[in-house]
Nucleic acid binder design. Structure first.
Lengths: 670, 670
DNA sequence: GGGAATATTCCC
DNA sequence: GGGAATATTCCC
């Protein structure tokens, strides 16, 4: 019996009914709303212009052709009866002084305060009239107890009865409403969890890719890193245009005060070194390739990192303040001077120059776990690669460098991570909501809260998971950004370590002319550009001229590379999304249309500072070299701090304590 | 109105309604009597032999075929409910001691004292049950009549008044609470939106990373791509162990029919070329580096891609089947023979070797938008790089190749792109969740839906964006994975194009022995493995042996590399998360502790297979090599599927009618 | 089998 | 517009 009943009845259930108190919105209201919305019915039933009422144009046709599709009958009267049951009222025709033929002008206009176009969520507020004079239990009790009253009181009482009914109805409505909300919240939580999971996955993949890139860069650094001899033209014949660049020597000033100021004078001591920039004294330093690490734990070996190749360029005695002295070169390792090229002497960097070495950068790195790793590789490869012209290497490296994510997350209010901050204030409310009955100081007693308002299926587990997910996913997000930033820094540093200017290298694609993706390899392009490198400029800084797309157009690069020698053999464009289309100032958002309008797109702080003049005379290595990265990662790291308390606060009792939530919890314990 | 009512209702009313006090006999009883009498229904409902009860033989068929003709429904349960309402009772089966299959023997027998064959006049005696415990008017009347009571009763009345007030206050409190809840729900929405934004950003970053990798690979392809002459040992001194590998020559057959069949015989024509593999005839083909593109649109130039450098090695006449002939070398370009190294002659690649060229692989690429790009680079670089020993190159490439995600993209049902596929059906459900109140027929009127439950500040925009974000973020996730996969394939192909075996290269890290991250460079490791490369093997197909951690230990690699020549100069470990700690079977989750407990941590398949013995004779290559990861991603892919329908189920009050509701509607119209 | 809410019909 | 009975559905 019951089985058959179930089997037969289930197909009848269009909308899954909530366990408690049936459906929140009666079927009639839902159907009515659908019906009015349905463009197919527009001829017979439709919204008023204002959307606050609806018309039935030809009730006979409407009954015949529409009603049956939604209801079990085709009686317009029954339809109207239902409308009345739900409190709809008919709006009389305004100017209808003259009676026309019913069929012609006849149309019905019904309205209800909570029946509006585009607002189906209001439907739950529409109350169906209860069976007349049917008091609920409590009311009945009340009434019975009130039985013995004076006539006057009885009168007032009877008046009260009506109020009681409305009160009961109101309570019922509220309960339904709350059931709805609870269900929705659960769904949202589930959705959120999926999202976080997705974010986790993405983070993992990102991390893997990052590792791959890091290793590739390490490798390339080992291959090209120490190659500093630009005088290969005599060995490998190169056309003049290419030779120009290296001849000019590479010296570039990166002078964004906030992001770190680094001066590289790769060829200091070389005769034609132009010193009009006022180089500060001090040893030339070779940047180090940092390896972004998410779980890195600093080990002694991290800082020792013997580098036999770099050992070929012994650090000056005054160096080694932060790190132990580099071990001397292994005797079995061939020295760079074994370079087969005739210009090996010039290829060897200035003896005064110090090899790769960690600077203040490392010590002040926001990511303390990150440790420098000196690059090293088979010297034979070095020798071999030394045959490349510097221009070639420069171009190659630029292609590797400026395709990286240029997001400088220097400001907590910037970029997407900052959005989390905005969510924070509501945390208390959210907390209340999730755990309304739990006092604010009650951090250990889990209770169902609102979510388990009606049915209490395991709210705690949901809570816990959710919270853990949330907090840690934010962490993951922060890690990703930090890693990307670190990668950015790494490549820039790396390229600078080669005596090249990453900014200059990307001049064609990210320079002052965002619309020209091609590389400029004319000699005068080698001039020192005081502007901060594009990778340090936030992409959103469109207000300034230099805010170009930092994404490097590798194809254009190749074209220019190949085209310089063979203009007719342009490298094909393979249609990469970022290559041709995104040379504008935009960089972060490939899908602008997707941006939620509700979330304000925050202005990045350096957008205001972008125009700041470079600090003159500060050319040498600055301890702030890595600051852009550290700031970024710091900000990213702050995300959990700022956002997580919100989540954890609300987060209910069972919320797993995240690192970020710790402080707030302690605060509570005060 | 009344006219229409009558007109429309009449066909439903078999028996004319009596004017006075409604019908004497309720419609149900009349219909029931007719139904049982109707010989057309004899097969499904009929009188008992005695005529004092009736049978329903097959209630399912009965409901389907009979009920609808008499009632407004087809629910047997409703029918039974009515019977019960009129006092019918079910007669238990007499001889049914044994429970048989319900459908078989199942029949229902109902009886009522006043329901007999041939005696419809008794029907008026059947009383429908009144509304239970419904103190209708009388109760209220009772109360009113009781009004005149004693003061004590009045007291109780005043007490009631207080209760009413408290009720009102309680309601007010509830309402405030609800406002809070709504606000918090909005916050959750905002949080969700941030999540989506975060996902978008991650996607962007990922894309940029991907671009970086692509460019690096392009570059490397340009550098190494045409290197086909392994006889560099005499130029660059190499230890014997390294020299062994290249001498064995590399030839690999990629034989996944779905991805395209490509044969590489990199050194065809070289004297010591071992041909025991039975190379298929045909021109030597060099794989091409595909450039993963998310928005790529294949352009004609993609396939033309003239390569002046490759032009230095003119393709054989039988080439150029897929791509136009390479332009001849530009006269201004230095030829490789200008190489300064003494072994320049040997450094020049084998003249018979053909340059990079698109193969079937490209045409059958899973990513249709991806277009082939011939790699090109300065032949001087080629020449220079040719001085590297093949072993060196092999090691280098392996470090580049096997740190990537090994997810093969060949099968739509595998990996994460399949997520999307699998997720597609649930998109509607998710839609419902986000916008449950929007009726299915309402395609043009946006409404707030659940999310804008209480306050309706611009719900439409939120909604819209949310949806866009949601769907597109999922898409983005797919793109990312596809790109990673493509990258993977690209690298493998690329490496194969160099005549190297990517799988073999990664034997140490991803081979049958997951616990040994070190490279195996013994000579016998160079044997040709006929098995398809991992990237072309569907991950889900193999329940077989070796799944290992695909993550390559670059540091170990470097150590082994450097150590081979100079054991005392081990490359420092920089503590990368994946370098030392992750050589175990885990691959996807660098932060196990971060995993939400609610989301079941799927056991990666290879965790169960880890101990499986390696397939004998299959040393480097196992079809299951890539399985470990795809399974994991597949599990991740299932998340949406599993959770999203749930979203809609709970979908709440304003839930739009689901597809399931449609049929019921039509059925209703019968 | 029955309570209870909604749906439909009939009637005023 | 609404009272009231019956009809249908959903749930326990």
């Amino acid at each position: 019996m019951a089985t058959g009943q179930v089997a037969l009845a289930r197909h009848r259930t269009p909308v899954p009914v909530q366990k408690s108190s049936r459906q929140v919105v009666p079927a009639f209201l839902q159907k009515l709303h659908e019906m009015v919305n349905d463009p197919n019915n527009h001829e017979l039933i439709r919204w008023s212009e204002a959307g606050d009422s609806f018309y039935v144009l030809d009730h006979e046709r409407f009954a015949r052709e529409v009603l049956g599709r939604w209801f079990k009958h085709q009686n317009f009267a029954s339809f109207v009866r239902q409308l009345n049951m739900y409190g709809f009222h008919k709006i009389p025709h305004l100017q209808q002084g003259v009676l026309r033929s019913d069929t012609d002008t006849e149309f019905w206009n019904f309205a209800h305060a909570n029946f509006h176009r585009g607002q189906p969520d209001l439907l739950c507020l529409i109350q169906r009239k209860k069976q007349s004079a049917q008091p609920g239990d409590e009311v009945v009790m009340d009434l019975r107890e009130t039985n013995s009253a004076t006539p006057a009181q009885a009168n007032s009482f009877s008046g009260q009865v009506v109020d009681i009914h409305s009160i009961v109805n109101g309570i019922a409505a509220i309960k339904r409403h709350q059931s709805t909300i609870s269900a929705e919240l659960n769904e949202l939580k589930r959705s959120n969890q999926l999202l976080w999971q997705d974010a986790m996955d993405a983070r993992t993949k990102h991390q893997k890719q990052q590792d791959t890139i890091n290793r590739i860069v390490k490798f390339l650094a080992g291959v090209f890193g120490n190659r500093a001899n630009p005088h290969k033209e005599d060995v490998v014949e190169s056309n003049p245009s290419r030779a120009v660049v290296p001849r000019r020597k590479s010296r570039f000033l990166i002078e964004d005060g906030r992001t770190g100021k680094v001066t590289f004078d790769n060829e200091k001591g070389v005769p034609d070194n132009d010193s009009e920039m006022g180089d500060p004294p001090g040893p030339t330093q070779y940047p180090i390739i940092e390896t972004p690490q998410s779980i890195a734990s600093p080990t002694p070996s991290d800082r020792i990192s013997p580098d036999p190749f770099l050992g070929a360029y012994p650090p000056p005695p005054h160096e080694a303040s932060h790190i132990p002295q580099q071990p001397t070169q292994s005797p079995s390792l061939p020295t760079p001077t074994t370079d087969a090229t005739p210009s090996s002497a010039q290829a060897t960097p200035n003896p005064k120059a110090t090899p790769f070495q960690p600077t203040d950068i490392i010590g002040r790195s926001v990511t303390p776990n990150r440790s420098p790793v000196n690059m090293e590789f088979d010297p034979r490869i070095q020798v071999v690669l030394n045959q490349l012209t510097p221009a070639q290497i420069q171009q190659l490296l630029s292609s590797l460098s400026h395709t990286l994510d240029p997001i400088p997350t220097t400001d907590p209010s910037s970029s997407s991570s900052s959005q989390l901050t905005q969510y924070t204030p509501s945390s208390d409310l959210f907390n209340q909501f999730i755990n309304p009955s739990s006092p604010r100081h009650d951090t250990h007693v889990p209770d169902g809260g609102l979510l388990s308002f009606d049915d209490h299926h395991d709210p705690m587990n949901l809570q816990e998971n959710n919270m853990g997910n949330v907090s840690k996913s934010w962490k993951a997000t922060a890690d990703i950004e930090r890693d990307v930033n670190a990668m950015n820094t790494d490549l820039d540093t790396f390229i600078r370590g080669l005596g090249l200017d990453p900014q200059h290298l990307a001049a064609g694609s990210a320079g002052s002319s965002p619309s020209s993706p091609s590389l400029h390899l004319e000699p005068d392009d080698t001039h020192v550009d005081p502007q901060p490198p594009p990778s340090l400029v936030h992409p959103d800084t469109s207000s300034s001229s230099s805010g170009g797309d930092p994404i490097f157009d590798f194809d254009s690069f190749l074209n220019s590379f190949a085209g310089s020698g063979h203009p007719d053999t342009a490298f094909p464009t393979d249609g990469e999304p970022f290559s041709a289309a995104n040379h504008g100032p935009i960089a972060l958002d490939p899908h602008p249309a997707l941006h939620p309008p509700a979330v304000a797109q925050p202005l990045l702080p350096h957008q205001h500072q972008q125009g700041a003049p470079p600090i003159p005379g500060v050319r040498g290595v600055s301890p702030a070299t890595a600051k852009r990265k550290s700031d970024a990662s710091e900000l990213a790291a702050q995300l959990p701090l700022q956002a997580m308390p919100a989540l954890t606060d609300t987060g209910t009792a069972t919320a797993t304590p995240t690192a970020a939530s710790k402080p707030s919890k302690r605060r509570r314990n005060k």
